Computed example of a mutant assay.
Amino acid sequence: MTLPAGWHARRPTPDDVPAILAVVHAADTFAIGYPDFDAEDVRGALTAPNVDPDRDSWVVTDPDGTLVAWAILQNETGTGREFVDVFVDPDRGASVRAPLLARQLDRVAGRAAERGLSAMTVRCPACPPERRWAAELTDAGFGFVKRYQLMRRSLAGVPGEPPAPPPGVTVRPLRPGDEAELRDFHRIYDTAFRDTPDYEPVGYDRWRARIKSDPAWDEWFLAEVDGQPAGVLQSSDQALDRNEGWVRVLAVLPGQRRRGVGAALLNHAFARYVEKGRESVGLGVDLANPTAPLSLYRSVGLREVRWVDMYELVVPAAGV
């Protein structure tokens, strides 16, 4: 699939970051109503593990020379499925989204061959306003695989002290300097998600290496039941530009579920966000997760605000 006459595709350079960010902001505003990326996110995507921008990314300029589209592959672990994002300025670049997708699928086929695989699975997201994009994914052979639900609540009126947890349950901030406690955190996270269909296990050393050097450790929590580690909560700074706390991970061991551990962890996180002056809190829910506790999230005031659909395609390796 070719680009329109006068349009050009090339590999991105570090100097393109501001123009790429402008495209991503326009794409995000159209898809979800607000920008959800910053310049460091762009740089991070271009320098992420298992990404070579000279092979795995494209930008497109229109006949005026304006950058209007950016495509990037993602696969932090270097194993399992690939993720493709194709961002376009909705007013100027919509016509090049499908051609860029075709180029990225060719690259996935090449990456599969390089890894000695017969095929690789690739996924692409689509938000409700992106009806044309969803149709283009379907035309390319993708099928709907699952939906992610975003939930959010205002923190207005939430006290700075969390309510008392159920008897036997205690919650405290994680001690990041305690190696054994970090291993407990990872063990609980890993065990809790083993019954999730799409979960790709990551060993402790790789998990630890992926944590940025200075996260807000005071927003990470460990819950115990009768003195034994039972659940964990990890926050993220991905929504700070909206002054929003973000729950990235909530995990409770299977044998400790339905005992109030999850709600206690969430209440402690909410109180910490209030203490820091955050105005709201959000999180994402994989609705394909058999343990996705929507009733738990609703019980602490979170409400559904939007969703993202995920589409999937199996791409044969080049030469197969």
Rank of each mutant, 00 (worst) to 15 (best):
L3T: 09
L3V: 03
A5N: 07
W7V: 09
H8K: 14
R10L: 10
D15M: 04
I20R: 10
V24F: 10
V24Y: 01
H25P: 07
H25L: 06
H25I: 12
F37C: 15
D38P: 12
A39C: 06
R43A: 08
G44T: 14
A48V: 14
N50L: 03
D52H: 05
D54Y: 05
S57C: 10
W58E: 03
V59I: 05
D62M: 05
P63Y: 06
D64T: 12
V68F: 02
I72Y: 15
Q74K: 12
T77Q: 05
G78F: 04
E82K: 08
V86M: 04
V88Y: 08
P90V: 09
D91Y: 08
S95W: 03
S95R: 08
L100G: 08
L100K: 11
L100Y: 14
L105E: 02
R111S: 00
R111M: 13
R111N: 11
A112C: 11
A112R: 07
A113H: 09
E114I: 01
V122R: 01
V122P: 03
P125H: 03
C127S: 05
R132S: 05
W133G: 02
D139N: 14
F142V: 10
K146C: 07
R147L: 04
Q149W: 13
Q149R: 15
L150D: 07
R153N: 07
P159L: 01
P159D: 07
A164T: 15
A164Q: 14
L174F: 02
L174A: 10
P176K: 13
R183G: 12
Y189Q: 14
D190S: 14
T191P: 08
A192W: 00
P197G: 08
D198Y: 08
Y199E: 01
P201L: 06
G203S: 06
Y204H: 00
D205W: 06
R208Y: 09
R208T: 05
K212Y: 03
A216S: 04
D218I: 04
D218C: 12
F221R: 15
A223D: 03
E224S: 13
E224R: 13
D226C: 06
Q228T: 11
Q228N: 07
P229V: 06
G231D: 01
V232G: 01
L233K: 03
R242F: 01
L253S: 02
G262L: 12
G262T: 09
L265F: 06
F270N: 12
G277Y: 12
V281A: 15
G282Y: 11
D286E: 04
L287G: 06
A288S: 15
A288L: 12
P290T: 03
L294S: 07
S295P: 00
L296K: 11
L296Q: 13
S299I: 10
V300N: 04
M310F: 00
